[in-house]
Computed example of a mutant assay.
Amino acid sequence: MELKGKLAIVTGVSKGIGLETVKTLLEAGMYVAGWGRTNNSIDHKNYHFFKTDVADWENVQASYKATKEQLGNPAVLINNAGFGIQGLIHEIDVEDWKSMYDVNVHGLFYCIKMAAPDMIDNQEGHIVNISSIAGTNGVKTMSGYVGSKHAVTGIGHSIFQELRDYGIKVTTIYPGSTNTNFFDDMEFANANENMMRPQDIAQTILGSLQTHPNYHVVDVEVRPLKPKG
């Protein structure tokens, strides 16, 4: 897709992969609508922030309407918002479990539900879902997060078959350990320089977007080469 001058919606833009993705897409000449509960420090004429809680269906509808009114229809949707809470299956709090699914799964659905009809009308679009290595295997004490990311995998694999005939691509990216705030409250790991950089994940997203119209990157698994240094 030719990206220059087109609009991307990116969720979860306050830090980490979302923040670096916004920077990368702006450098590629795109307009970016940043959705999140908190903003970042980016000051760019083509960046516009819309306060959004993707877990809230009414809020997502309002943000999409405002985005369209100000910036037009999106060509790209990056579903990056997500988080994980650690806990044994019999000990994790029920509300924590629900909140992970509300953001990681329901939020992704809400955003796609809003953007897909306009992409279908335009006969062009690219949806990128940020899953995790946890979307391909199990992780002890992370069953809630793992389950939500397996759902992202299944959704992506299903909807690319639904949307491909309309010229819409769906890519799911599975990052391994990445140096972000994700690990702030985790007992089994701490963010460190041996993990991947979020800007490299952003470059992977960009690469999938810049492909030939008939070339569809469905799944991308990325890991640090030397996770122990």
Results as ranks from 00 to 15, higher is better:
G5H: 00
Q70H: 13
V105P: 01
V103F: 02
T11Q: 00
K68Y: 14
G82L: 09
V94M: 14
G107A: 04
K23M: 04
N73W: 11
L19P: 02
V22D: 07
K65G: 11
L25C: 05
Y110G: 08
Q70M: 12
M100I: 09
I17C: 08
G82M: 08
V13Q: 03
A8M: 02
A81T: 08
H48M: 10
K4R: 14
G87A: 08
S99F: 11
I9W: 06
F109A: 10
V103I: 13
L7I: 06
G36W: 00
V105M: 09
Q61N: 12
A55Q: 04
Y101W: 11
V13W: 01
D53G: 01
H106M: 14
S14H: 07
N59F: 08
E95A: 11
I78T: 02
G18K: 08
A66Y: 06
V54E: 00
T24P: 01
S63F: 05
I78M: 09
Y110D: 00
G18P: 01
S14W: 07
T21R: 03
G12A: 06
L77A: 01
K68S: 13
G12V: 06
N39R: 11
Y47L: 02
E95P: 01
Y110W: 12
G107P: 03
D43L: 13
S41C: 05
A62M: 12
L7Y: 01
M100W: 01
Y47D: 10
Q86A: 06
L7V: 08
A55I: 02
L25A: 06
P74T: 06
D102G: 05
L108T: 12
V13K: 04
K68D: 08
Q86I: 03
G36Q: 05
I92D: 02
G16Y: 08
T11M: 04
G87S: 05
K23L: 03
G107H: 03
A33E: 06
N39G: 07
N104A: 00
G72Q: 07
V94N: 12
E20R: 05
D56K: 03
E58V: 12
D93H: 05
S41G: 06
H44D: 14
G84I: 00
Y101F: 15
E69N: 15
Q61C: 15
G107V: 05
A8D: 07
T24C: 12
D56C: 04
A33L: 06
K65V: 10
K15W: 01
Y101L: 10
K51A: 12
V60C: 10
Y31N: 10
G12S: 04
A62S: 15
T38H: 13
I78A: 02
M100Y: 04
K4Y: 04
I42L: 13
M30H: 05
G16S: 00
N104Q: 10
D43E: 15
D102Y: 13
W97N: 00
S14K: 08
E91W: 01
K15H: 13
K98I: 09
N40T: 01
I85Q: 12
D53H: 04
N39A: 11
E58T: 12
E95L: 13
D93P: 05
E69D: 14
R37L: 09
F50N: 05
P74F: 03
S41M: 12
V32N: 10
V32M: 00
F49P: 02
I42V: 12
K15R: 15
Y31I: 10
N39K: 06
S41H: 11
E69S: 14
V13T: 06
E58Y: 11
I89N: 09
A55E: 07
L108A: 06
I17R: 00
